[in-house]
């Protein structure tokens, strides 16, 4: 928790679970007694299959819940990469789903973390947890909340079915492991 205020953007295709991992982060922030907001793109932005949400986690009152310039962004598909790559603040981090976004680095002043989340999720045996894999990678490199808070938030929002919880825990760990070895 090095920063008093962290702004996130989570973006991808509808169905890639970007709104969900945004909620998990907001929930984890709330459980950590921090101020949080979660704000989805809605309306026409949602049509055409893309989705994104903004999350703010802060130690003090949050002004606008909209995030124009994220400190940290996750882009799960190529359209989202192009839409948000220039918005990340200098010194920020962009997590890229390298399973779907080709090797593109249009900036020198931010960190690119490329994670093949689809392949990793496939190895785990469930394509749907690619978003959780990315969440794990982000937690390993730029954590804003403690590990146990993130795990608890994930458990609360994903439901407590044992097999689902176990799958999510594996996905989160796989993401962390991959990121640590970068």
């Amino acid at each position: 928790m090095n920063s008093a205020l962290t702004k996130y953007k989570f973006a991808g295709f509808g169905g890639q679970g970007v709104l969900f991992i945004g909620k998990v982060m907001a929930q984890a922030g709330m459980l950590s007694k921090q101020q949080v907001t979660w704000f989805p793109a809605y309306g026409p932005e949602m049509r055409g299959g893309t989705a994104n949400c903004s999350v703010v986690i802060s130690t003090k009152r949050i002004g606008s819940p909209t995030v124009g310039k994220p400190d940290i962004a996750i882009v799960m598909n190529e359209a989202s990469y192009h839409k948000f790559v220039d918005s990340v603040v200098p010194g920020g981090t962009l997590y890229v789903n390298s399973s779907m976004v080709p090797e593109l680095r249009s900036r020198e002043d931010i960190r690119f973390v490329r994670v093949p989340v689809n392949e990793i999720a496939h190895e785990i045996g469930e394509a749907k947890v690619a978003n959780i894999v990315m969440l794990g990678a982000m937690q390993a490199i730029t954590p804003s909340v403690a590990d146990d808070m993130l795990e608890k938030a994930l458990m609360e929002l994903a439901g407590k079915k044992p097999e689902l919880a176990e799958l999510n825990a594996r996905a989160l760990n796989a993401g962390k492991e991959f990121a640590k070895n970068l």
Partner: peptide, 10 residues
């Protein structure tokens, strides 16, 4: 406004 309607907060 639409932001308050759509946003989540504790």
């Amino acid at each position: 406004d639409g932001i308050l309607g759509q946003m989540m907060e504790p």
